[in-house]
Design a protein around this nucleic acid. Structure first.
Lengths: 222, 222
DNA sequence: ACTTCCCTGTAGTGACCGTTCCATGCATAC
DNA sequence: GTATGCATGGAACGGTCACTACAGGGAAGT
């Protein structure tokens, strides 16, 4: 058990068991008892590694986010003759295909989002922060590529990038929920539609003069 | 009897108290104790009118849905010289403006969606059913107007209508969650973007020949 | 061999959960 | 007045929740 101690294998086991329980029983159905049953370790071990249930869930959120960061698409720059939307398609499609089933992470996070703000659990706070961080990954890639290609037209590239990143996040959230409702919404076609919208935003940005652009976009988020 | 029970004012009080508790404390924080505290009636009254907590929540879902049906936008037909998207704008904008705060209904429903399917509570089952029903309200209006105006081009109007209805529902879900995350996503601008997308779908449907249209759209839906 | 420290095992804790029991009101009808 | 049935009041029920007190194991250092 030496190796187990040093490598923190028990902590990992608890973390993974918790994630499995969340994905099987949902947020409300996640109890310490189920987690201990799942990982074979007693509750005292759980409370040895984690201060309380809230901190454990926060750790689950962080754990999954880090996993996503490793497996996330590589944001390669757009080549000279390439279309930005085509590259985006290539980057996002595998991820969208997994959205229906694979992401217990998003399910847990969305449950946390729907909880009241006031009570402000560590898990919820962390998810909101990581969600924002993840969105910035999108945003910066967009901003870089828009700046390079000049596809944003008269509008500030950062502004268009923020808009597009928000659009992506909102769309994925909606897609996950739609899937949970058992509506057979096809991820592939939905991405098609989304990319069409992205193209349309870019088109609009390029066409529109600077003056009128401000009217439509200044309200988009903080 | 059942009819006598359903007409009672106490039943209504319990129902409203439950809705308030849900909107304040979220799904997980909704307990019988809090509901009785809120409405001033004892738990025995709650169990006089409702079989159990699950049935009470199912009744809350139905109650709010019926309220929405009454307050929903009137789906007036599109006039001769009018644009379909412009009318849609007029119909949806007030509703979208309320989405951020007002709809405890959607918050409860989304929490139910994120619960596991197997356990299959009455409340969850009912929300899924009403969600589908509500979506069909959209769908039929779209289908009618598309059939009348011929805006669907070569594609079957029902198919385009289904696609647009799904798009609307997914977008509203995502918008509610985004708002819960505290991202200052502006509902007005988001609706602008959404309507642009609708217009784009219609444009694509009108332009595309029948043969290629099938490739993109057959996957949308069940 | 002895201490040290990390982790596990057992057996709880009180609090709160949904739910139930049953006596009591309180109208209305006889 | 007395009977009838809907609805309330209050006090409990067993169960499960998150969490803890504490003793013990077992590897590592000395």
């Amino acid at each position: 058990m030496t190796a187990a101690r040093r490598s923190g294998a028990s902590r990992e086991r608890i973390l993974e068991a918790a994630a499995e329980v969340v994905s099987e029983h949902g947020y409300a159905g996640t109890t310490i008892a189920r987690i201990t049953e799942r990982c074979g370790l007693p509750a005292s071990s759980v409370y040895w590694f984690f201060e309380d249930k809230d901190e454990l869930l926060a750790a689950v959120v962080l754990h999954h986010y880090e996993g996503w960061l490793e497996r996330r698409p590589q944001w390669r720059p757009v080549g000279p003759g390439e279309d930005l939307v085509a590259v985006l398609d290539e980057l996002l499609r595998p991820w969208f295909r997994d959205l229906g089933e694979a992401t217990a992470y998003l399910r847990l996070g969305q449950s946390l989002l729907l909880e009241p703000r006031e009570h402000d659990s560590a898990a919820r706070t962390r998810f909101v922060a990581l969600r924002r961080e993840g969105m910035q990954v999108f945003e910066e890639w967009f901003a870089t590529e828009l700046r390079r290609s000049g596809a944003a037209g008269e509008r500030p590239p950062e502004e268009v990038a923020a808009e597009l990143a928000r659009l992506l996040v909102v769309a994925t959230d909606g897609l996950v929920l739609s899937h949970r409702a058992g509506e057979g919404l096809d991820s592939d076609l939905f991405l098609d539609l989304l990319l069409d919208t992205v193209a349309e935003v870019l088109q609009g940005a390029a066409d529109r003069p600077a003056g009128t652009a401000g009217d439509r976009t200044d309200r988009m988020g903080r």
